[in-house]
Design a protein around this nucleic acid. Structure first.
Lengths: 229, 229
DNA sequence: TACTTGATGTGGTTGGACCACACGCCTAGA
DNA sequence: TCTAGGCGTGTGGTCCAACCACATCAAGTA
């Protein structure tokens, strides 16, 4: 057992037992090192790992933003892990898109019409109507799809959706250059978004799921390869 | 930009550009530190992160197993990340089980009967028949379900399935104690496994998906809370 | 030839030092 | 009295130098 793993175990234990909760603060690195009888280096290595996993956030200085505090950002961990393994060509982009279709169509079929996340999605849709900038449109589009995922009320699916999105974000951005006519594409995407939202509002989960799948795969087909709107 | 993140970027760049591939070796820590004009500490912190993400593996000594080499274990990264966030109570076990049902039933519906992974699943099923030890049975059960997921041919879904499993493994293990009669449960599980395999062999993906969902949710209901066989 | 022994290179760990930063007290001035 | 500045204190960020344990390989020895 390597030293930093001992520190990891200790922190995970504190989290499991509830002695360290969301928003809680870890002891200072030097204090924790002394407490666990290890070097500060080992403590720092453990903190780095948890930071990369979206469990901790380290801040310098003093005050409320300082120190090492517990956060909860599962998307960050899953996202960077997926991105790295895509980089090693071990996770094909095709599989990522396929998984995204799977998760997102499920989320659409399970989305509750009264969910606040769905209201947020509708608001974003309104913003996209008056949007002329391509980059801004895509940013809003991402948030729209994430809100859709949130509306299903499954935190794991939401986190995975976000991470899949993050993993292929650069890739998807490059694809927009392949589009022959961005304006017409944007118009189509807007219309499809409205259709999805309408299906969910009508409690027609089956249609919503199908529309989402078509929506993503349609973009996939049009842009030539791998990442939907 | 913190120093270790610079090292992370450099390594990710090497991976993306293909100059560092699966099985490749990183320069020695001291050499890499000098090359990037940073301290060995920062290099080590970056390596720790990538190690936790299942991208690198560090080995001491000399020879083939020594040095820092590129591996590809997406499951490790996703699994520990999910486990940690479950520990913070930010990802409900209920959502994990629900996601597992979603992914696994999809995998069953897409599994190709001629897949080698499916043959492996059948082999494992045979081993489980002559198995009397509870713990060994559960270990084989895990491998059976993972083989099932692999048979769909989607690396992302396989990795996510494995990570979900890992995240709630301890939890699932504790649940077996709740069962009133393990022997009869094991017999039922075996029969259900055979049914799933048969449906896939008959190219009846729809039935297979439904059987898998029932299989997992049945165990969930019987054990009282959260993790299927 | 077979065994021992040391050199070499790897990651693993440690302690100490210094830096930049941000807050909050505490003093000097208005 | 009230205000504005400076300085002390504690935080993470970085670096360095040294040592350890380990595994291999080559040279030397019986």
């Amino acid at each position: 057992m390597r030293t930093h793993q001992l520190v990891l175990q200790w922190i995970e234990g504190q989290l499991s037992s509830g002695q360290l909760a969301l928003g809680g603060r870890l002891p200072a690195e030097r204090a924790l090192a002394e407490q666990l009888k290890v070097s500060r280096t080992s403590v720092r290595e453990a903190i780095r790992v948890l930071e990369a996993m979206g469990v901790l956030r380290a801040g310098v200085g003093s005050g409320p933003d300082a120190g090492t505090v517990v956060i909860a950002d599962p998307t960050a961990a899953l996202g960077s892990a997926l991105r790295l393994h895509v980089a090693t060509s071990h996770l094909p982009v095709k599989d990522i898109v396929e998984t995204r279709v799977l998760l997102e169509s499920w989320a659409a079929s399970r989305a509750r019409p009264e969910s606040p996340a769905l209201a947020e999605a509708a608001r974003l849709l309104g913003q996209m109507d008056g949007c002329t900038d391509t980059e801004e449109f895509l940013a809003l589009d991402i948030r729209f799809h994430l809100a859709l995922a949130d509306a299903a009320g499954n935190a794991v699916v939401s986190a995975m959706m976000g991470s899949l999105r993050e993993a292929i974000q650069d890739y998807a951005g490059r694809l927009t250059g392949n589009l022959p006519d961005w304006d017409s594409t944007a118009a189509r995407l807007r219309a499809e978004h409205r259709g999805i939202l309408a299906a969910i509002s009508n409690h027609d989960g089956g249609s919503a799921a199908q529309l989402v799948a078509d929506h993503i795969e349609g973009y996939y087909a049009e842009a030539g390869l791998g990442a939907g709107s």
